Amino acid sequence: MITPTETATSTAIPTRWVGPMRLSGAVTGEVEVPLATFESPLWPSVGRGASISREVWDGVIVTIVGERMTRSTLFVASSATVADAAAREIVARLPELQDLTAASSRHARLLEAHTEIVGNLLFVRFAFETGDAAGHNMVTKAADTIMRRILAWGLRLDYGSISGNFCSDKKVSAVNGILGRGRSAVAEMLIPNEIVVRRLRTTAHAIAELAVRKNLVGSTIAGSLRSANAHYANMLLAIYLATGQDAANIVEGSQGITYAEARDEGLYFSCTIPNLIVGTVGSGKHHPDIERALERMGCREEREPGGNARRLAALAAATVLCGELSLLAAQTNPGELMATHLRLERSAPRRA
Rank of each mutant, 00 (worst) to 15 (best):
P192T: 12
N193V: 10
E194F: 03
I195E: 10
V197M: 08
R199E: 15
R199L: 05
R201D: 14
R201P: 03
T203F: 08
T203I: 07
A204D: 12
A204P: 11
I207M: 11
A208K: 09
L210E: 08
L210K: 12
L210D: 07
L210P: 09
A211L: 10
A211Y: 01
R213W: 09
N215K: 02
N215G: 05
V217D: 07
V217F: 07
V217E: 08
G218Q: 05
G218P: 08
S219F: 05
S219L: 07
A222L: 14
A222E: 15
G223K: 10
S224Y: 09
R226Q: 12
S227T: 15
S227A: 11
A228W: 07
H231A: 15
H231Y: 13
Y232A: 09
N234A: 12
N234P: 00
L236T: 05
L237Y: 03
A238C: 08
I239H: 07
D246G: 01
D246P: 00
D246Q: 13
A247F: 08
A247W: 06
V251P: 05
E252C: 14
E252R: 15
G253Q: 10
G253L: 11
S254G: 15
I257K: 07
I257R: 11
I257G: 00
T258Y: 03
E261Q: 13
R263Q: 09
G266Q: 03
Y268V: 02
Y268S: 14
Y268M: 10
F269G: 08
C271E: 12
I273Y: 00
N275A: 11
L276Y: 03
I277Q: 11
I277Y: 02
G279Q: 03
T280F: 01
V281G: 01
V281S: 04
S283N: 09
G284N: 11
G284E: 10
H287Q: 14
P288K: 00
D289G: 01
D289N: 02
E291W: 01
R292Y: 01
R292N: 12
A293R: 12
M297R: 11
M297G: 00
C299I: 06
R300C: 08
E302K: 06
E304Q: 12
E304T: 11
G306R: 00
G306W: 01
G306L: 02
N308Y: 03
R310F: 00
R310K: 13
R311W: 03
L312V: 10
L312I: 05
A314Y: 01
L315E: 09
A316N: 13
A317E: 08
A317M: 09
T319I: 03
V320G: 05
V320W: 00
V320M: 02
L321H: 06
G323V: 06
L325E: 10
S326N: 09
L327D: 05
A329V: 08
A330S: 14
A330K: 13
Q331I: 02
T332M: 04
T332V: 06
P334Y: 11
